[in-house]
Amino acid sequence: MKATAQKESPRKEERAPTLDYVAPEVNIYETLEGYVLEAEMPGVNKDGLEITLEGTEITIVGRRGQDPVAGEPLLRERQPADFRRVFELDPAIDTGRISAKMHQGVLTLTLPKSERVKPRKITVSD
């Protein structure tokens, strides 16, 4: 927990110059094979996506494509900010095999577990 608290501060500083990020809403599932993470980033396509892996930390950044609408805004609920969220990874994840897919503003990350930690059925011989 102590190491965790120490990690928090450099990230804050790093965030300082760009405060206009919003955290995407995510679903995370764990299966026997690994993890699946889905993140909602409307307006972001493949080119606007940056996924960085640093140690056991994965950072997802989604930059919205430029879609300025001319004219006078009558109602504005959408946030123009880019998306960013950081996750601490389970050490069991095989970081070399992480794959990402982007479809209609939803990022799906597949994070397989290393073969050695996968549960294995052992047959007992007589």
Binding site: E40, G43, V69, G71, P73, L75, R76, R78, V106
Partner: peptide
């Protein structure tokens, strides 16, 4: 879902965030 409405000279433009549909 979040929604924007814009008025242009000749059109109204509406944008709605509907990720993953």
């Amino acid at each position: 879902p979040a929604l924007d409405v814009y008025e242009q000279k000749d059109n109204f433009v509406i944008k709605v965030e509907l990720p993953g549909m």
